[in-house]
């Protein structure tokens, strides 16, 4: 019991601590590819602390939804993170929810983010909310299905079971085609859900292009810090999902401190690699037009569905 609480707490701390680093890493990669030095490694942490200390300016038009949303978004994202194996293949809270729960917990955050975007009455917020609604509608089904396609081999939708069995290669027969399709689908979902190029651009404040940034335009001070931190955690969650579901090797399968520390190190290497990849993609591609984005996301949905169909066809 105490062990479970400690592991859960450590997991929360690790995610909270590492997530700004990943955001900074992507920025660094982009800067280097543009032949710039870029801000220092600790800049995202300084940004968060500064935002937390700043005064909050809230709109007179807003209601308690606007005030409560950052806390709800932060809490629901953190809750989702606690259900995902990071350095230990079987998280203590795994009985509380599976992949569908993770998706719906993130959806809870999205729901309140959309409401917060509408609350100030500004057209920017409404626009961001409206776009977020369509992006979320197309990505979340793809996310459930792509992970389920992998879950089929492990015979479970429980993330811990999937990761644990894959790590130990317990009764796992890998079929490359469905797995690759699911991987591609999940990667597209990651780009879309975390507001990355080519779906959204986290660096822009141009109303024609922004989605996530438009919704949080009215936020300032500690509210903005919480929302930013939550989206950094969400990014890390997706990278963790990709690395631990498709390549869980190195993760601790027993709650031994040594192996868990090793697991953290291996996990850091994996998610950093993915973050570099995202940085490269952001530098190489332009943002898609909004109505081209939907085709791109439709692709993820179809790929994940095909992954399941192929799985059964290959097995007969």
């Amino acid at each position: 019991m105490i062990e479970s609480v400690v592991i859960t707490f450590v997991q929360a701390v690790v995610i909270l601590a590492v997530s700004p680093f990943i955001v900074g890493l992507i920025r660094k990669v982009k800067a280097r590819l543009q032949c710039r030095q870029g801000p220092g490694w600790l800049q995202p942490y300084y940004d968060l602390v500064k935002l937390f200390r700043k005064d909050v300016v809230a709109s007179t038009h807003t209601s308690w939804i606007f005030t409560a949303s950052p806390y709800i978004i932060f809490a629901s994202t953190l809750a989702a993170v606690l259900l995902v194996p990071i350095f230990l293949s079987t998280v203590p809270l795994n009985f509380a929810g599976d992949v569908i729960t993770v998706v719906y917990l993130l959806a809870l955050g999205t729901f309140f983010l959309i409401l917060a975007g509408l609350d100030a009455g500004s057209a920017f917020g409404g626009m961001g909310s409206s776009r977020e609604a369509i992006v979320a509608s197309l990505t979340e089904p793809a996310m459930i299905l792509s992970i389920f396609a992998v879950g089929l081999t492990a015979g479970s939708t429980n993330l811990s079971t999937i990761v644990h069995k894959t790590a130990l290669l317990q009764g796992i027969v890998t079929d490359p085609p469905p797995h690759l399709m699911a991987l591609a689908a999940l990667f597209i979902v990651t780009l879309a859900e975390t507001g990355r190029v080519p779906v959204d651009n986290p660096a822009t404040h141009l109303e024609l292009t922004m989605i996530h940034e438009a919704m949080i335009l009215e936020y300032s001070g500690r509210y903005l810090a919480l929302v930013e931190w939550a989206s950094a955690m969400k990014l890390l969650l997706f990278l963790t999902l990709i690395s631990n579901i498709f390549a869980p090797w190195g993760i601790a399968t027993e709650p031994e401190p040594v192996w868990m520390i090793f697991g953290v190190a291996v996990w850091l290497v994996k998610v950093s690699g993915l973050a570099v990849l995202i940085g490269v993609i952001e530098s190489m591609f332009a943002k898609l037009r909004l109505f081209r984005v939907t085709d791109f996301l439709g692709l993820a949905f179809i790929l994940s569905l095909l992954a399941i169909i192929f799985f059964y066809i290959l097995r007969g």
Partner: peptide, 23 residues
Amino acid sequence: KGFASISTPVLGLLLIVLVPAAL
């Protein structure tokens, strides 16, 4: 099959704990 499980009381408790934690 050990397929999957959810626990809404625990999820509810988690959210109730984490919101004040954020605060």
